[in-house]
């Protein structure tokens, strides 16, 4: 949905318009509920999914390339399938999206990046907490539990522990300012553990 779509519209037939909206809303709600019941939102991201904000005032709306400022802060996002279903049934689907200087991207990271924008699994490889924070001095991604730092320019390799393994990268491309999944996660999601 673009910004224009969200502008209030004038309507000469207000009652009918309201009913129409209510029906559309009810259908959308029912569709989402059914999809959730069927656990359709519990699949991993696929090519063609669009990244949408997972929290904040624009929750559920596409992350736009022009709202990502150079060198952070990052945004958290879930993939949304082409039908509009947000794939938030799996916590491990959440990604952290950030824009860095394309010239600083190492070749491996660049392959999955678009215009300096990179997306990584937001699930820390240490204890599975959300990598939602940003070190503004060192321009690094930071885990919200134990402070592990990951370099978004270098395929999210660990630059400060206790994590010992990089975050998986989600390859992306840009389409009309939206961030579109260009391939499956590259790497393992979350920690490796018995429990």
């Amino acid at each position: 949905m673009s910004r224009e779509d969200r502008r209030p519209r004038r309507c000469d037939c207000l009652g009918a318009r309201r009913r129409e909206l209510m029906v559309i809303g009810a259908l959308a709600w029912a569709g989402t509920s059914v999809a959730r019941a069927l656990q359709l939102n519990e699949r991993r991201p696929q090519v063609g999914d669009i990244l949408v904000h997972s929290m904040g005032p624009r929750k559920g709306q596409p992350v736009r390339s022009d709202e990502l400022v150079l060198d952070g802060p990052p945004q958290l996002a879930f993939p949304m399938d082409p039908s509009g279903l947000i794939l938030d049934g799996l916590r491990f689907n959440e990604v952290v999206v950030v824009r860095v200087d394309p010239a600083q991207l190492d070749p491996e990271a660049r392959a999955g990046a678009a215009d300096g924008i990179v997306a990584y699994s937001a699930i820390c490889t240490h204890e599975a907490c959300t990598v939602s924070m940003w070190n503004d001095y060192e321009k690094m991604l930071v885990c919200s539990c134990h402070g592990s730092m990951f370099d978004p320019r270098a395929r999210a390799k660990v630059v400060f522990g206790p994590a010992q393994r990089r975050l998986a990268q989600l390859p992306i491309r840009l389409e009309e300012g939206k961030i579109v999944v260009a391939g499956p996660f590259q790497g393992r999601l979350g920690p490796q553990r018995a429990s």
Partner: peptide
């Protein structure tokens, strides 16, 4: 005994 938790569980203090 090894308890097996949910895959997506995150631990601030493991």
């Amino acid at each position: 005994f090894q308890g097996e938790g949910p895959e997506e569980f995150s631990a601030l203090h493991n």
